[in-house]
Each structure stands twice: as C-alpha cells, then as structure tokens.
Nucleic acid binder design. Structure first.
Lengths: 237, 237
DNA sequence: ACCTGAACACCGTTCAAGT
DNA sequence: ACCTGAACACCGTTCAAGT
C-alpha cells in the first residue's frame, strides 16, 4: 500500500490523494477503524504528515463527504418536480450504499462544505422550479430530512457489516428457542417482524427489503407534499 | 461528587447508581465527554470498579437508554390509533429533549434491551389495535423510523450545545457580509433559510421552530397512513 | 464480593527538528 | 515546503493483586 514510484522514490502526497485513500480505506475496513494513524500507514507516511493536507480529522471527514456528493447525479431536466426529486434521492441512495461509512459521517457533520451547500441548493431548487412556495419548500425540506441523502434512521437497523465477518449464527434449535421466547414476550414485534419475508423468503427476522421500505416512505411523503402544494398550503393558516 | 456516607464511609456502588450517575453526567457535560474514567471519578471510584456493574461501555449506554425509555408515557387508552401514536411520539420527544445525549446514543444501539423491545411492542400494538393489517403496520413502522423516538435526522441541524459555551458570535458587519456571500452562492438555500423566522423573529438562519417541523412531518405521515389504511392498502398490489 | 493499581494497545494532536 | 520523531493527554479494557 505504500505509494512509491518505479525506482522507489516517494510520490508526493496531495490533499486529493489523502481523501481518496481515506474513502477507499473506509470502504474497505469500515469508518470506525479509520484513524489518522491507520490512514498514514496506508499512504506510507508518518501520521503527522497528513496534517499538512487536512487541518484535522473533522476536515478529513468533510473532504470524504465531498467526494461522495460528487457521485450524486445532477437533477434530471425536463421532468416535473416529483420525478426529479425522486430520481435524485434514489441516486444519492445508490452513492450511499456504495459507501456505507457515509451515513454515520453525514450524521455528525457540523460545518457544511461548499459541495454540500451546492447539493442542498440545487435540491431546494427542484421544489421552487416546481412552483412550490418558499414557505412550503422550507417545511418540505425539513420533513425530508436525511432522506435527502438517501437514508433514514431505521428501527430494525442491521448494524452494518463493518467489513468484518459477522459472528457465526447460533445453531438452528437455539435460534428456534430464541424466536419462541421473543414471540412470547413481544408478540406484536414478532408478528410484524415475521410478516413480510419479502425478498429472500427467510422467516427469521429482518429479511426486509430496505429499498422497498425506503421508497414506500419516500413516496408517502412526496404524495403528501403534492397534496399540500395543490391545495395552496401555507404555514400561516 | 464523591459519594460518601456521613462518617466518610463508602456508599456501595450498584448498577442503578452507576446508570443514574451516567445519565446525570451526560445531561451535564454532554455524551462525548462521558468516558468510563470520567464517570468513575464522578462516583468516586477507580475506573475499573465500574466493570463490576456493567460489562463494558456499550452496556452502560444500553442502560442509559433504558432509563430514558422509562420516562416515556404509556399509550393513551380509549382514543383512536392516530391520537394515541401522536401523543406517544410527542412524549418520547419530550424525554429526548430533556436528554440531548439520547439521540446519538439511540442511533448507535445495536442490541435492543427488553425495555426497548417492550416500547416497540406496545408501539406496534397501537396500530394493530386500530385495525391496521400486520403488513401495513410493518411498512408504517419502517416509515416512522426514528420518529418513533421523537427525533429525525434534520438537515440544518444545530450541533447541540454540548453543555459548553457556544463560540462567540462574529461581529454584525462580518455576519452581514457572510450572509450576502451565502445568498450569492446559494440563492435557494438563502431564500428558504430566511423565509420562516417563526418564533424568535430572527432573520439570520435557523430560527426554525423544531417542534413545528417535527409535527408537520409527523402529521404528514400519519395522514398518509390513515389514507392507506382506509383504502385497504397491501404490499401485494 | 467488591475494589485497586499497573499496564497494554490504542487515539488525535502539539511542538521542535530535520531535509 | 514538506516530512519526521518524540511527546502529551487522553481512551477502553486486561490482568493480577489486594481487602
């Protein structure tokens, strides 16, 4: 992984190389394992050398988000606000699924970089171009929240593989016993959890189709926005 | 802060005392400053003593969440599913606002404790009691996501006071210059951000009424749920 | 049974020094 | 201008020892 030229001479570090290496490393080993020291080792440099290119770890994470944002498609042209928003959110979601580290990182960003503000600005622009009032657009953006990035806080959230081996599944009979106990103690959870074995037909727990759930909620909101817009909704009323 | 009896004799540590101290400490200094070492100091004990009462830091955080869940009102009786859900979500939200550490902690929980499962079970029960199909209830719970806890990933999220002094505001003229630049570079963001000076009448940035935004989105979703329920919606259709 | 002390393997970041 | 080395002030957690 140490970056060297043909003859072994050092390749100069740049901010971009640092950020790209950070993204690749986070994709590979999970964000919680990415430390300044680990990243330095990855690019073949002493930890402190990184600080010539990013002020601190926060700025590193901001830069990683910028690379992510660059992967999101621009707004579709010549379609209504509704498909435009829908397509863009789903594009953001694809970028996010490619980079599982991005969700927790986005959640903790406090300063918005120009790239992030650009994304938000053009996102808001889709509603305004669709004839939404500034007032309604404001509330609609809040209602969308992190869904603008293609994710939501899920309830039954699987804890993200973290690029490590999942713990070995318990033996089938132990599993069955646990499920029985679950069903006895939390009958409603059990019914709802086992109800929809969407994609893989598995009976145990979350065989949920996350994409379906995401689009279900997204469309519910978009339909709501459409209805409010059609009836000329205003917060002063 | 060291816990001692009258004559200076030690008060025995218990799991409950550890958890309550952790909650109080997180309320006071912010969750990111709560370390096992800092908490130990708070209860007047050497760090390792805590490990007799909680297996590790994760379990400490799980226990803190349990104390939070205990503050949420039980479901209202003899009302429809809609007001019942609404009231309970808003009760959860009040608990959450009392304990700003709870949001990030909930987001990172991976194992659900019995108290959390109890809450979820009775939450799901409100929809089932209202006549929702198991199928619709499943999707509705996903759509609600973290809103069940009274929070959402906000976009313009203020970074939570962290129980520390906020940095001093820049001088007014610098502020105005920054706003002007903002408006030039990100016109849509600027329009929407300055549009609603709800509560405090401030023109600068997020004078947003978070509670209004939360209820706006919640009601949008509840209305959507109601509509789907009324029309007998099913995922197989 | 409960608490202590010393140690291990990590962090992010500083400062002064090297080339 | 860029990179290095040593150090500081932290982490969570282990192990063996004390009472």
């Amino acid at each position: 992984m140490v970056q060297q030229g043909e003859g072994g001479q050092r390749v100069r570090l740049t901010r971009d190389r640092v950020l790209e290496a950070a993204v690749a490393l986070a994709d590979e080993i999970g964000i919680e394992a990415v430390s300044m020291r680990r990243l330095a080792q990855e690019v073949g440099v002493v930890p402190m050398a990184l600080y010539k290119h990013v002020a601190n770890k926060e700025e590193l994470l901001d830069g990683m988000v910028d690379l992510l944002v660059a992967e999101i498609d621009p707004p579709a042209r010549d379609v209504g606000w509704k498909p435009a928003v829908r397509l863009r959110v789903l594009s953001a979601r694809r970028a996010l699924l490619r980079h599982p580290w991005a969700r927790p990182v986005l959640e903790t960003r406090v300063n918005k970089t120009p790239a992030v503000l650009d994304y938000m600005d053009s996102f808001i622009g889709m509603f305004l171009a669709g004839g939404f009032s500034v007032d309604l657009t404001h509330h609609v953006m809040h209602a969308l929240g992190s869904r603008m990035w293609g994710f939501t806080q899920e309830l039954f959230q699987e804890p993200a593989p973290a690029a490590a081996e999942p713990p070995p599944a318990p033996p089938p009979e132990a599993m069955a016993a646990m499920l029985g106990q679950m069903a006895a103690l939390y009958p409603n959870v059990a019914r709802v959890a086992t109800a929809s074995a969407h994609d893989d037909g598995s009976v145990v727990g979350p065989g949920c189709d996350d994409q379906f759930e995401f689009e279900f909620a997204l469309d519910l909101l978009l339909d709501g926005f459409e209805r409010l817009h059609a009836q000329g909704w205003s917060s002063r009323s």
